[in-house]
Design a protein around this nucleic acid. Structure first.
Lengths: 245, 245
DNA sequence: TAACGTAATGATGTCAGACATTAATATGTA
DNA sequence: TACATATTAATGTCTGACATCATTACGTTA
């Protein structure tokens, strides 16, 4: 949003000042008055328009930062900026939730993989039934990408599963799939995967693609299970080595 | 935690003061130094032990409040208290995520219900396979509860689906089921459901129970679909009336 | 004695105003 | 041209005072 055409805020009445800042700005962001990447007014401007102190304003902004709606940049050309809302804001919460149970390294991994199998088997079936031509083209494009390194390969994998979830035409499931996958990769990112199974994974990916293309939910599910299970085994091998080494 | 045996914090060095407060206290809460319901030291105490100002301390606390880890109580006997971490911290994020797409009332509802069907069909099958005797007893107990009012009835329903998800023995799926259900109920809580279908719901609930008891995943899935679909229809009727009225 | 009003208490909430820090940019000098 | 320095505009921090809120304690009165 252009800073010159900024909206006029009403000064606050009830509730606390900091909470008022939080609520109002949250509404403005959600309703799109401030869009992704936009800079919010400065602390001083906000406190003036709200008619409250800078300290209270900052507390409200800090809460907004906490829920992941804005980021803060210090220095010249700094300020508060509206963040892109993506599945990340679920990931941190899900992580907290699971950590409170204090599961072991392997336990958590298995539960996450099981959850992936459970949900992604559904999304891949839905994708086979509901996918558009655009969905199919996008998936095909990712499969055709030239892969030069192991890392690139796993990034590509990342995209494929997201695109499949997207093709299910269900946003709820799409975000949940994303969140679980992100959590897995961020939790176990320290594990360096071997690249001896790349051929297998490429086969299963192609099987997923073609079953979606052929609108064959049963085949799609089988391929998805194979794919995720092969991932699980890849990781489990490394985890085993990790324990021994 | 007993306030008298409070941990000694190291004064902060790098990163910002408010962020230090946020990170340290978050760690203390996650690692269980401060447990659910415990009162944190007061702002003044914290700022003294951290060696920073009250203002910076408050900002850190506000961020902790933002992510839902603590609550603030004003007045005598007030203070900051550690909140119970439950699926609520995903619900708000998921809500934000879905709102950004600006779906219509009915669109969102259908996607949420579809997601429920997708995931709860899996959890109920897993429950049929993995449930313990304790799980079964808990479900049975909820079914036997005397129900005096419509509201009570729907609370009971709430418990049943949670218990089934719990019986799947997968925490990830359990929390996700909880989150989706909470989001539905909080988004559509203004809709007063008719009670003319209670008999049907009780039947499907019993069917869910007995198929879990008999360790019959196929029957369990069928019953679950019936149950959620009947819910969907209940709501859709009301939504239709809502549009007309 | 019981009921009610009021003061004390201890926590968070708010304020004003100063100065520190940070990082991009502009400027000046070798 | 390249490098060092000053400027600038934002957030970061500090201090110390006062306001508000909600529980508890107390004291007065019917």
């Amino acid at each position: 949003m252009n800073k010159k055409s900024k909206p006029k805020f009403k000064p606050y009445k009830k509730s606390s000042a900091h909470n008022y800042v939080f609520e109002i700005l949250k509404d403005y962001i959600i309703s799109g008055v401030y869009k992704v990447g936009d800079q919010l007014p400065t602390e001083v401007e906000l406190s003036q328009t709200f008619g409250i102190s800078r300290a209270a304003t900052r507390e409200g902004l800090r809460a907004l930062e906490g829920i992941g709606l804005i980021t803060t940049v210090q220095g010249y050309k700094g300020g508060r900026f509206v963040k892109k809302i993506d599945s990340e804001i679920i990931v941190s919460g899900l992580d907290l939730l699971l950590q409170t149970e204090k599961p072991s390294f392997g336990e958590l991994f298995n539960e996450l993989i099981e959850a992936r199998i459970a949900i992604e088997c559904v999304t891949v079936k839905m994708a086979a039934l509901n996918r558009s031509e655009e969905n199919l083209a996008a998936i095909s494009q990712v499969l055709d990408l030239r892969v030069d390194s192991k890392d690139e390969f796993y990034n590509k994998t990342y995209d494929l599963h997201e695109l499949v979830a997207l093709a299910s035409q269900n946003k709820v499931l799409f975000y949940i799939v994303q969140a679980i996958r992100k959590l897995i990769f961020q939790t176990y990112s320290n594990l360096a995967l071997e690249d001896n199974n790349i051929d297998l994974v490429m086969k299963t990916h192609y099987a997923i693609y073609s079953s979606i293309k052929n609108r064959d939910p049963e085949e799609a599910e089988k391929a998805m299970i194979l794919d995720i299970e092969s991932y699980r085994n890849l990781y489990l091998e490394v985890i085993e080595k990790h324990k021994k080494g």
